[in-house]
């Protein structure tokens, strides 16, 4: 048990679609947990990372909490992986980058149709939004990138088994072409 490879996962500004795709490895999950133990992850409900071998990050960085979580992962994971389009490029959440943050907040909380009791939320418990949604490699150093929206279950499987078996991960063309 002590020798199992420790894996942590999280979703920042993402939709959990990458996590769902990961679960699509289906029964292969049983093979995986033979050699892998999950640390912080929505799958385990563990709230903070301890030392891990692999960290899988879904989603981009849209607020200050994302920055803290990402840094916690970087500090604890030997290998940190950007998983999916949002982590790699900002993805859908980054569509707001073309609109100034002030306009976004005004529309959502002050001027939008159906807004009652208009006010900008302000509480020290609430994370503040960054003016732009950022890919995670612009905030911490990232070791590997798994492309796709989401990356298919086979991509997760190939990548993780390569790493676990001590090979340099490589994704064959069939797994990363999308048309």
């Amino acid at each position: 048990m002590a020798n199992k490879i420790r894996v942590a996962t999280t979703s920042l500004a993402g939709c959990f679609g990458c996590h769902m795709s990961f679960l699509d490895i289906d029964e292969r999950m049983l093979q995986l947990v033979e050699v892998v133990e999950f640390d912080r992850s929505p799958l385990t409900d563990i709230e903070h990372c301890t030392h891990c071998d692999i960290g899988l990050i879904e989603g981009g960085v849209c607020n200050s909490e994302n920055v803290h979580v990402l840094r916690e992962f970087r500090n604890n994971c030997k290998i940190l992986v950007a998983v999916g389009a949002c982590a790699i490029n900002g993805g859908l959440p980054a569509m707001r980058n073309h609109i100034p943050l002030e306009e976004c907040l005004n529309e959502a909380y002050l001027d939008g149709i159906g807004v009652e009791n208009p006010q900008i939320p302000s509480d020290i418990e609430l994370p503040l939004l960054l003016d732009q949604v950022r890919p995670i490699h612009e905030v911490v150093k990232i070791d590997y990138f798994l492309p796709g929206c989401p990356p298919s279950a086979d991509v997760f499987w190939k990548f993780l088994t390569d790493l676990i078996e001590g090979r340099e991960p490589s994704l064959p063309y069939e797994l990363v072409h999308y048309d």
């Binding site: 200050s64 920055v67 970087r74 100034p100 943050l101 002030e102 907040l105 900008i120 939320p121 302000s122 020290i124 609430l126 503040l128 939004l129 960054l130 003016d131 732009q132 950022r134 612009e138 905030v139 911490v140 150093k141």
Partner: peptide, 21 residues
């Protein structure tokens, strides 16, 4: 090992001002 290429704290400025924090 790494530093962001943009001003991280500066990126919060608009939100800070609007939330008055």
């Amino acid at each position: 090992s790494y530093e962001p290429g943009f001003d991280l704290d500066g990126a919060l400025e608009t939100a800070r001002r609007m939330a008055n924090r």
